[in-house]
């Protein structure tokens, strides 16, 4: 899979909590939901991607912390 800086940054933010494998899976799964390939991710896709990832984290962390992660992605991924 070709490298994509945005994809790498999102994975980097998620990996302390999820580990590298699950972080990569998170990006891949939520890109698929958007109908995008992870290597084609662009900053324009970020709001939808972040929202989708945030939703998926609620069952593990609760709404507040899922939102905190989402904010961190928005701030640091671009």
């Amino acid at each position: 899979m070709p490298e994509n800086k945005l994809m790498k940054r999102v994975q980097h933010i998620l990996s302390p909590l999820q580990g590298e494998e699950m972080a990569a899976a998170t990006v891949r799964i939520h890109c698929a939901v958007m109908g995008r390939k992870p290597e084609d991710l662009s900053p324009a896709d970020l709001p939808v991607l972040v929202k989708s990832i945030q939703e998926s984290l609620i069952i593990f962390l609760g709404s507040d912390k899922a939102q905190a992660i989402a904010r961190s992605i928005e701030m640091h991924a671009v």
């Binding site: 302390p16 494998e21 699950m22």
Partner: peptide
């Protein structure tokens, strides 16, 4: 299923 997934 996922290695080093602290979240799980």
């Amino acid at each position: 299923l996922y290695k080093k997934a602290w979240i799980l």
